[in-house]
Structure formats: structure tokens, C-alpha cells
Amino acid sequence: MVRRMINSPLTILGLVLVLLIIITAIFAPVIATHNPTEVNLLSKLEGPSGEHFFGTDEVGRDIFSRIVYGTRISLKIGLLVVLISFPIGTILGAIAGYIGGRIDQIIMRATDIFLSFPGIILAMSIAAALGPSIENVLLALAATWWPWYTRIVRSSVLSLKNSEFIEASRALGANPFRILFKEVIPNAIAPASIQASLDLGFVILAAAGLSFIGLGAQPPSPEWGAMLSSSREIIRDAWWAATFPGIAILITVLGFNLMGDGLRDVLDPKQR
């Protein structure tokens, strides 16, 4: 399995990128050359140089250091959103698929409703309702993301719910709770977890978008979307301020996508 992954150069690229992102996030204080929030009006709007790799912004903050610290924010959002929505979606999907009947109907109608909005519109409304902050963006994204996992897990559960090993467990007198958590979920979780690894990137992208329209991280924070948002004011004079945070987002999303694609090729033979 590992060999299959390593055989694909794109997957390796993905793994390397993800590793790079994680290392950057962990060692941000070591890697950053400046304090990411320190204002220095004497050196504002400076272009990229040996002193400031990616230049400085309208109040003289070092863009390179801000991007480095921004990795922490984006990674945190990506991980937390997936860590919240994945278990919720998985458990609901497993319950819907395994128990069926009325409960299935209710859960699946709920996912239909959530999925009838383009994700970002729903997240935007929720984030707006909760008030602009990074925590609320996190909750809003989690609230829009779970139905995908519910659908995926439910369909895998449906295909294995009549398996003989599940029946064997019932014949032994196992209660539904045990069957769900010991037999059903462990076997139904693979496709959804592949999706989750792809989603890490898309969540980060969506969060940056929400921050860009002013709903997420607020300006002093070195969040990439927020940085791009404030770069609009100075785009005429400082192309670098509008360029580098976007590259950071692109690389991050690309990394998680490539890794997810690689995982799918290995774990899901149907997609090969």
C-alpha cells in the first residue's frame, strides 16, 4: 500500500507539501523572521527584499512572517472543522443506514436541506448570524460540511448492513450500539475518511473566502483570506501583498488534494 502511494509522483508531491505545511505551523516562531503583528510605519509597503522576503504591508508588517503564522490558523480551522463534522456526519450516516425507517428519513431529509444551499452561502449566513470571528467561521463550516459525510457513510453502510458478519453479531445477541460501533462504522469509514482528507484543503479554502468577505478572522490576525482582503486597499502600490497569501492558500489546498487523491487511489479500488 505504501509502495503504491510512493509510486505516484503527484502523491509524493502532496505528502511533501502537507509535511511542509505542518512543519511550518509547528515551528512558526523559528521560521518567521519578524513578529507577525508588529507595526513598523517606517518600513511600510516595502517590496520583497533580503530583509522582508515577501515585502511589507500598509503598516509595515512582514508579510512572510504573517504567512508563516497564518499556517497555524488555517491548519487549525481545517483540522477542527473536519474533526467536528466528520464524527457527527459519520455517526448520523451510520445510524440512518443501519436503523433505516423513519429515523433514516429524518436524517436524510435534513442532509437534503443542508445540501440545497451552495456550501459557502449557508456558511456565510451562519457565520453572519453568529457574528464575525474565526471560531464562528469554524462552527459555520462544520455545520455545512457534516451532511457530505452522512451521505457517504450511509451509502457504505447500506451496502454492508446485510453482510453475514453483521448478522452473525446479531445472532450472538450484540446490542445495536455495539454492532454500530464495532462492526458497521469501522467497515464503512474508509471512503468518508478519504473525502475528509480532501476536505481539509477545501475547508481551508472556504475559511479564507469567508475571511476575505469580512466574516472570519479580523484584520490584525495574519489569516490568509483576511490578508488578501486588506491587500485590496494597497493593490496599486504593493502587488506582493495581494500575491503571496494567495500562493500560500493554493499550495496548501493543492497539497491536501494531492494527498487525498493518492489515498483514494490506494484505498478505493473502484476509482482506480
Binding site: 503527484l10 484543503g201 479554502l205 479564507a208 473566502g209 476575505f212 483570506g225 488578501l228 491587500s231 485590496r232 493593490i235 496599486r236 502587488w239 495581494a242 500575491t243 497569501p245 494567495g246 492558500i249 493554493l250 489546498v253 493543492l254 488534494n257 494531492l258
Partner: peptide
Amino acid sequence: ALLGVAMPAFWLGLLFLLLFYL
């Protein structure tokens, strides 16, 4: 195609604005 999917559209828009307009 890979780049397209991973691309933050609003950032691409900013770059277009910068290049073709400004």
C-alpha cells in the same frame, strides 16, 4: 485542472485585476 480546483478564485480575481486593469 488540478491548479484550477485548488485555486482560491478571489485571489485569482485580484491578480487579474492587478495585471489587466491596473
